[in-house]
């Protein structure tokens, strides 16, 4: 997709941006992926459109979905109960979130006694159906190794300090179970609507590396 010459017309806009080029050479793994993909398509094991479709599936899953689930759990005790009993069926039934990768979902509730953190030491297992793609640091070895062996230091590097009388509970995802952290609802949000609550819930809060906070600007109700 490299444009070496820029010779097409721009009727709608006149160049506010630099030309987008792919200048780096493909890596060994880029070439390996292309070769295997082309072979599999050639052998009719799947079609190019199926790959495009799967990318579309992944792109439709973002932390905003997970944030809606969390906000609902904060305001609806019945939903919260079902979500904690079976994360997957609650997400399927109330939000239509499909678990295309055939994983189960355990929702981990943060309380005054327990702070949950999720990791996949072996690879990059992540609740993709609910949160989309994991951040890069989640897939890299330093986080994967240290989250299970020195979680409090890792948390401190994210600016999160958990008191010693609160258990830090790490859930390591290895096979068919995925985890989603249900953070504690921040104080001072009693009058917030479900949508306003969802705005407070970030990806990192659902991984458990931070706690949701009221930003200065969002405390308008108080």
């Amino acid at each position: 997709m490299t444009h070496t010459e820029h010779d097409h017309d721009h009727n709608e806009h006149d160049h506010p941006h630099a030309e987008i080029n792919q200048t780096e050479k493909p890596t060994y793994y880029d070439m390996l992926e292309t070769a295997i993909r082309e072979l599999l398509i050639e052998r009719k094991l799947f079609e190019a459109d199926e790959i495009r479709r799967q990318i579309e599936v992944l792109d439709s899953r973002t932390p905003a979905l997970g944030a809606k689930v969390v906000a609902r759990a904060w305001i609806d005790p019945n939903f919260r109960k079902r979500l904690l009993a079976n994360g997957r069926t609650a997400c399927e039934e109330d939000f239509g979130i499909t678990f295309y990768d055939d994983t189960e979902l355990i929702v981990l509730e943060n309380t005054d006694k327990v702070h949950n953190l999720i990791v996949c030491t072996l690879c990059s297992c992540y609740p993709r159906p609910v949160l989309g793609l994991p951040p890069d640091w989640y897939k890299l070895k330093p986080y994967r190794a240290r989250a299970v062996s020195e979680p409090r230091k890792v948390l401190a590097e994210f600016g999160t300090t958990i008191p010693d009388d609160v258990e830090v509970r790490v859930s390591d995802s290895t096979a068919m179970v995925r985890y989603l952290v249900l953070p504690k609802r921040p104080k001072g949000t009693e009058t917030f609507t479900e949508e306003e609550l969802a705005d407070l819930v970030t990806r990192d809060a659902m991984i458990g590396v931070v706690e949701p906070k009221l930003e200065n600007g969002s405390a308008a109700h108080v």
């Binding site: 020195e150 979680p151 409090r152 009388d165 258990e167 830090v168 509970r169 790490v170 390591d172």
Partner: peptide
């Protein structure tokens, strides 16, 4: 860390 800490 704290002796309360655990892993699942």
């Amino acid at each position: 860390g704290s002796p309360k800490d655990g892993l699942r």
